[in-house]
Design a protein around this nucleic acid. Structure first.
Length: 294
DNA sequence: CTCCAGGTTCCGG
DNA sequence: CCGGAACATGGA
């Protein structure tokens, strides 16, 4: 496979592809194999350049959001030590521009699942119901279109280990395939209207809608609040406060983290997820399950 | 075995 | 508006 070069300053490819935004990239040699839409991709980073198969060059640059102004984004962050530490830890991580339906669908399947499980589900769905793609001697699979999933029975999706999410994914696929919810139309809507529209899909609440907006609709202000973020916000931004409601967290995050809140969120999320365990295991006399008390 | 995971939805204060 | 419970499955 012939590779072409993409200039990529301020990019950490491994960090970006492995940070729980997309779930299907597989390490291959020095690089990564996967699909961007229906295009098979091999990407490999060497210093400030990305080497990619020629047919995927344009799609990769866009997918990796190499045009996002990282310096400006970092400069926009509030200067508190928690976010600054996360930003250093995640330097070079970019918010991917993923296909809209793929973002919606994968995050419908993400509820109450570990990242590893979401990846497993993604691969199963791709292998069984996605378009088959080939790159050199490698076989890859696109994420299945809404139309393909809409034609299935709930049992088919349960067989992909989706559990109760099967009904939600099927229902969402039917609404998108029928045009009842028009994802193309969402692109032109204001953030709040787009969020409201996404929440009409079964299995899509505020958090999943925000993930879809951030990763699939270029809404960099979107700030999904999951269990990890909630822990960080409560402990670091509302210390010694007994009761902080979800509404208070939502309001605080929406205002405090500013126009690139989605970047801040992704950095806080990844940093917390990677470092939390070590902190727990090194806590003196740590008793299982009481890691919250400092 | 127990705990928990990038939640949503429904139900009773 | 708020807290609880049900919902499936598999790693740690």
């Amino acid at each position: 496979v012939e590779l072409v070069v993409l200039p990529a300053v301020s990019l950490d490819l491994k960090l970006t592809l492995g940070s729980g935004q997309a779930f299907h990239w597989v390490a291959q040699g020095e690089g990564w194999l996967g699909a961007i839409g229906n295009t098979p991709v091999y990407m490999e980073q060497r210093g400030a350049e990305v080497f990619v198969n020629q047919e995927a060059a344009a799609a990769s640059g866009r997918y990796l959001a190499l045009d996002h102004p990282l310096e400006e984004i970092y400069a926009s962050f509030p200067k508190d030590p928690t976010l600054q530490e996360a930003a250093v830890f995640c330097a070079g991580m970019r918010i991917l521009r993923q296909p809209a339906w793929e973002a919606v669908a994968t995050f419908i399947t993400s509820s109450m699942k570990q990242v590893a499980h979401i990846a497993q589900i993604s691969h199963t769905l791709r292998r069984r119901y996605g378009r088959r793609l080939s790159l050199g001697e490698h076989t890859l699979f696109a994420y299945p279109e809404a139309e393909a999933l809409a034609a299935l029975e709930e049992g088919d999706l349960r067989a992909c280990a989706l559990g109760y999410r099967a009904k939600n994914l099927l229902g969402a696929a039917k609404m998108v395939a029928s045009g009842e919810v028009d994802l193309t139309e969402l692109a032109g809507m204001a953030d709040e209207d787009a969020q409201k529209e996404l929440c009409r899909l079964p299995g899509v609440g505020e958090k999943v809608a925000n993930c879809a907006l951030l990763f699939g609709f270029e809404r960099l202000r979107s700030f999904p609040v999951d269990v990890w973020i909630e822990r960080v916000i409560r402990e670091k931004y509302f210390p010694r406060r007994k009761t902080v409601t979800a509404a208070q967290i939502r309001t605080f995050c929406a205002e405090y983290f500013g126009p690139y809140g989605g970047y801040a969120q992704q950095y806080l999320f990844h940093h917390a997820r990677i470092t939390w365990n070590s902190r727990r295991s090194t806590a003196a006399g740590s008793k299982r399950g009481s890691a919250k008390s400092s």
